[in-house]
Nucleic acid binder design. Structure first.
Lengths: 218, 218
DNA sequence: CGATTCGTTGACGAAGTTCAAGCTGCGTGG
DNA sequence: CCACGCAGCTTGAACTTCGTCAACGAATCG
């Protein structure tokens, strides 16, 4: 540790540059700033007593993070070299008219995370994750995978082995093509969606959303 | 649709009575009310395209729910017969100074959920869940288990078989005693805490990340 | 160019799901 | 009051998945 500010480069006009891997703030720190991503990618993660690391979110250009109230409840780290706009929290001109917007956003992000973790199999989680990534960073010729396998694993609650294997399987099945380690091309987005949503073949009657009758249990 | 209000009984002075199993509002509905539990227990759950059900929270007397902004993003259902105080959401975003407290609570609950789903064995999840329950509803002679095994399973990301088995194991190990299906007595809260926190014996050196040595699972 | 970190891959075992059967408690109706 | 049926729960056995262990290959950095 001790690397808190180690990665910070030139700061000018409220911008700060962080080197890949450096920590932007620690879980537990007093929230002196909030941040907006100008370029690069940031991850937030929580460390648990047992050493388990849970990545809760990735932030891309335009995203805002570090809005916690009394103390940061997750750490933030630069996944790639990143340029951030840094806003001091004096007096509390947070971007929202109150904390509740920030809270709502955090809640939405937490729910997305729950959704990923709730998907049961490794294939489902990874497919869903890749789709979310595509959704977010559409590019002509493929998708960047800026984060390490370990990051993906810690985000999805898997091991890097399973991530690697599953990616390999997808590759063999022709769903994706790996182009180097940090980039991939989606070949069959339909199939991926099918895996992510785990659609079964026979949706018999009307129930996309209408368990009204009695199905309290599953 | 139709059954939405089916379980609603007498409504007077902003109170509404819901019968066990009835739906209070559906995921996707416009948020016309927010609620406070007067008595009984409520669960919120999200249904996914694949039929997978994720229970995100249980609410007990005094708890507040239904604060979503543009539409309810989870359904709410009565686990037991429940009496709720119902507040209309006329006009403005959300009233009440208690809102941000409730949001914070929701966020904390979501994080707890993430923690549970993230990387824990069935025993760890169930021990943690029971401790949370005890924390919340301490009673002289035991703990109510007002929700079904299926509810617990869908909350913890397990099957009802595993829930049942694990409960049985705890019983055999003398950690708890089941008294009928819906009530249990905690016999060894120490041991349960140890399981829930997955404490290992040797606190690591200085690294914030030392999962290398210890088994996360147990 | 060697060293270190990161990623891939195979073998194996434990944990949990699935399948299948049977049990319990409760409500309904005879 | 008891028989019956149903829904929720428990339990056993087979099977699948994924984490662990281990070894190796590939990129990156000095």
């Amino acid at each position: 540790m001790s690397a808190t500010q180690a990665g910070v480069g030139a700061v000018s006009g409220g911008f700060a540059q962080y080197r890949r891997g450096s920590t932007i703030f620690f879980q537990g720190d007093a929230p002196t700033y909030w941040f907006e991503v100008d370029s690069g990618i940031v991850r937030t993660c929580r460390l648990h007593a047992d050493g388990h690391r849970q990545l809760t979110s990735f932030f891309f250009a335009g995203d805002v993070f570090g809005l916690d109230d009394h103390e940061y409840c997750e750490s933030a780290e630069a996944v790639t070299d990143a340029r951030l706009r840094r806003y001091p929290r004096s007096g509390g001109p947070v971007p929202s008219p109150g904390t509740s917007v920030a809270l709502r956003r955090a809640l939405a992000s937490a729910r997305a995370c729950i959704h990923l973790l709730g998907h049961r199999t490794a294939a489902e989680r990874i497919a869903a994750f890749m789709l979310a990534l595509v959704e977010r960073n559409r590019q002509a010729d493929g998708v960047e995978l800026p984060m390490s396998r370990g990051d993906i694993a810690d985000h999805l609650g898997l091991t890097i082995h399973t991530v690697s294997r599953t990616l390999g399987d997808f590759c063999k099945s022709g769903l994706i093509a790996l182009e180097g380690r940090r980039r991939l091309r989606i070949l069959d987005i339909e199939a991926l969606s099918r895996i992510a949503d785990s659609e079964w073949t026979a949706p018999p009657t009307s129930r996309p959303e209408a368990p009204a009758l009695s199905r309290v249990g599953a």
